[in-house]
Amino acid sequence: MLQDVFDGLSVRSRYLRYHTAMTSLTPANRAALSAVDGRRRITLVAERIGPAGWVAEGLGHLVATGPDRAGVAVEVVDAAQGRGVGRTLLRHLVTVAEALDYRVVEADVLTANTPMLRLLGRLFPDARTTPATPAATTVAVEVRLG
Rank of each mutant, 00 (worst) to 15 (best):
D101A: 14
D126C: 10
L9H: 03
A135C: 09
T130G: 07
R17F: 09
A46E: 07
G38A: 11
S34I: 04
M116H: 05
A112L: 13
L44F: 06
V104P: 13
R12H: 00
A80G: 11
M116Y: 07
V72Q: 03
Y15W: 10
G50A: 15
R83Y: 08
A64L: 13
G82Y: 08
R87K: 13
T26Y: 02
T137C: 00
D101M: 10
V11R: 11
A107H: 12
L89I: 14
V96G: 03
A56F: 00
T130N: 11
G53C: 12
A28P: 04
V77F: 02
R91A: 04
D37Q: 14
G82M: 04
G86A: 14
A99W: 01
A99P: 00
G71H: 10
T137M: 01
E98M: 05
D78I: 06
L9N: 02
V11P: 00
R40H: 12
G121P: 04
E57I: 09
H61M: 02
A99T: 02
V77M: 06
T88F: 04
G82H: 11
L119Q: 05
L16H: 10
L9S: 00
R40W: 04
P67Q: 10
R91V: 03
A35S: 14
V139H: 01
P131C: 05
A135G: 12
D108G: 07
